[in-house]
Design a protein around this nucleic acid. Sequence first.
DNA 1: ATTTAGACCTGTCAGC
DNA 2: TGCTGACAGGTCTAAA
Length: 325
Amino acid sequence: MPELPEVEYTARQLRASVVGATIEDVQVFWERTIGHPDIAQFLTQIKGERIEGIRRRGKFLFVDLSEQLFLSIHRRMTGNFLLLPPGWQIDTSTRESDPALWLVKGPIFYHEQAEFPVSTAKEKVRVMAPIAPQLIARSATTHCRVCFNFSDGRRLLFTDPRKFGRIELWNGAHEQEAFAFMGAEPLGPQFTLTALAEMLANRKTNIKTALLDQKVVAGIGNIYADEALFNARIHPLRPANTLSNAETQRLHAGIITVLTLGIEHGGTSFNDYRNLWGEVGNNFDHMCVYQRTKQPCLTCTTPIERITIAQRSTHYCPTCQPERV
DNA sequence: ATTTAGACCTGTCAGC
DNA sequence: TGCTGACAGGTCTAAA
């Protein structure tokens, strides 16, 4: 789910809240979320580690730990972090009474001082928090795959309904080789007009597919690719190596614009994305084409069209983004 | 050498 | 109400 703006927003929140915290222990409720090393080593090595810093690279989130260890996290489609204040307990009775439910839905968290535990017919229990109660809903508490328990009583939950997200623990020597392949950071100094032009020059695939390739530019996903192409007035099926200088220039500026605005608006939540406090981002209200099929273009009122490119839904305005050069 | 289904997963919503 | 199919912020791998 999250693309660069959502990962960046989360990174900033984590930087402001968990740097300096000590990880007392970690609970893993879906083992495949841990990509490296194996569970036993992961649990042993991370115990007692102190969080030294938070970084982002593309859609990856890095958590620097003591002893030259670091966590590499990719949230894929539905991964989120949620920081719980002290006092939250895990309902272990759920696990004992119904292991299948435990594995599918994840553990349930509750707070002893909660004023209004809410039960529903479908779910066993929905527990609302005394703090930000409306924000801590089912998806946040019942799809927990990994729980980091800090020594100060706070818990950092990694929630992920679709279980695609991955958390890996490596030592410092691994980082350079593992991420050397990644493209330029679109909001960093290496992302120059020349750099973008060079990356596109030898790509004969369409520009939408090229933008989704993390080796071209790191951090762009389906939402911001569509929005950047609309911003640059370029048809998504245009071969990447046929863009004119003017078009490349517009695309370069468009990428920076839509990503920057995405961060300023707190990320795009059309479904699952939540920030560290469980709040939605506002950027969905600023979409020009993404998920606006058949709605009028904000520039020219032509209905937005939806096509499939590289098995991803693609949205564009046929008038503002003409197919011919 | 590229392009493209399929896999990994669960949830929601429209339509019948 | 219940079933089915389409679709959802991603990326890897195997087959065409």
